[in-house]
Every structure is written in structure tokens, then in C-alpha cells.
Amino acid sequence: MPEITYRDAVIRGIAQEMARDPDVVFLGEDVAKAGGVFKATVGLYEQFGPLRVRDTPISEQAILGAAMGAAMTGLKPIAEIMFSDFIAVCFDYIANEFPKSRYMSNGQTKCPLVVRTGNGAGSRFGAQHSQSVENWCMMIPGLKVVAPSSPRDVIGLLAAAVRDPDPVIFFEHKSLYATKGEVPDGEIVDTLGTAKVLRPGKDATILALALMVPRALEAAERLKAEHGIDAEVVDVRSLVPLDMQTILGSVAKTHRLFTVEENPRLCGWGAEIVSIVADEAFYELDGPPVRITTPHIPLPAADNLEDIVLPTPDRIVETVRRSLES
């Protein structure tokens, strides 16, 4: 199977959907002629033209508001918010407008749109360009929240998000853009709300999202090779809808649960999952669920400091080993 980068998968996913449906339009800062600051939209302007791929001013509220108005009246917009940290300056649309209009209007208003945004650490950009903010969106009823970890999932989940009738916040991880993965030729459409077991195992369940997925996979290989621990790695992929059946099924098999979260500790996505598991599968557990997260601090810029705070394969291996041995 051919390999492509996560970055090229974004381009291919958007192009696949724009080619399929003329109502799919794309807007954002520097996304058209410049091809995006992460070069994840190169060629779309040339392929689909200036009416469908549009550069905006630095006006995040205008970008998301315009996407919503277009979605309400018949288009299927994809909007880019360059860095997910900038969601804070247009949070009204994410928190108050997209997710509540259908409910408040008793079902009259529709909002089929996708907000793509560059999420996560690893670029040494400091505390305002590196955060993992998927939990900011997970807490809001009415939104869907997706964070792919591989090129194939980028295409399939982006297609599913564009075709979904609800507003979807699509978190692309900046540190994954250059990574490669196998992607089949032809159209790819995945399903929102489905987690994926990437590595089966019997001794422990490790849940991970986005950049934490390859780290969890590496840790699982080392746990097996160095300590004889057979860990199951589950890529959560979609926080809303949340595939609890897959997660509960894995816990029922391994009886131990670990979450690997890039977000700062308080109210990370893993906390919600752990609470559900405690509620519904407490007697399946042979030990306390353990959350492996970034500590509850703003992210530092310096590379040695940033590297210390994010969960690493080393930290995952150590945490799982110690927990299972105790």
C-alpha cells in the first residue's frame, strides 16, 4: 500500500470531499494561495478555485460565524482555525452558537460544518501555540470531537466529519503532520464514534489519542519485549461520540486501564472515561485506573522542558510496569 504523510492526507481528505460535493467550501487564514502555515492545504486553491477555497482576514470570529451562517443555509463549510489555542478567541461559536442553535430552535436550525485546527505540542512554540484543547470542546453538548492519529484516519474521519449533519471539531496534531502511514487508493470514508484496537493484548488497556497513539504503541512493544507485559492499545479517535463499547470491552478483557493524555491533568478526556469505567465496569478492574497526562501547568517553550512534561514512551512503560507489579 502506498505511504503518504499526515499532512498530505489532510489535503487529500479535503480534496476528496470538495470533488464529491460542490457545496463543500473551505475558508481560513492563509489557507488558499499560501497553502496553509502547516502546508496542509497546498494545491486546493489551484484545484478548486477562489470561490471555494478562500483566504480570510485574521478574524477567527468572522471565520467561524461565516461558516455557521453558510452551514445553516445549505453549504457544508470546512473552516480552519490555524492553531487550536485560537479557539479561545472564537469560543462563542464553539460553545454557544454551533451546538445550541438546533436545540434552541426546536430542531429548525442545522449546522453541518467542520472546524479543522492544529492541536498539540512538540513544536517548541510555548504555552499559546502548543496546547491540546480537545477537552475544551468535549464538554459541550451538541458538538462532535475527533482527533485522528494516522494518515488513513485523517482522510476517513475528515470525510465522515464533512458528511456528518452536526458541527464537528477536527483536531489535527501538528507534530504528526510529517509522519507517514499506509493509505489505500480510492475514496476513504470512516465512521465517527468508533475507537480502534491498534494492538491487541491481554494484560492492560492503554487508551490514547492523536500524538499519544504512536507513543502508546511504542511503549506497548517495549512492555512486551522488556517486561513480558502484553498491553492492548486503543486509539480513541473520537471523543464525541465516544465508543465506550470498545473501551469497556477492552477493560473486560485486560482488567487494567491506563489513559495517555496530552492535555493538562484537570478535566482531561481520560478523567471522563475513567469515571464511566468506574461506574459501569468497577468489578472488572484488578487495580486502580491510571491517568498518564501532562502536568497541570502551561507548556514551556524550551525543548528539554517541553519533552519532560508530555507523556513519553518511557513514562508510559514505567507507569504501566509499576502499576502491574504493585
Binding site: 470570529q61 461565516a66 454557544n96 436550525t109
Partner: peptide
């Protein structure tokens, strides 16, 4: 197309409908 209670929110939304 809605009455909006967060001041200013609907001006960009009206832009989007006009863009369509």
C-alpha cells in the same frame, strides 16, 4: 434565522448566509 443573545455573534453568521 434566529435571535442571538451573545452580543455581536450574529453579524458574522449573517455574513455566512450572505456568502452562501
Amino acid at each position: 434565522m434566529g435571535s442571538y443573545a451573545i452580543i455581536g455573534a450574529h453579524l458574522p453568521i449573517a455574513c455566512g448566509a450572505a456568502w452562501r
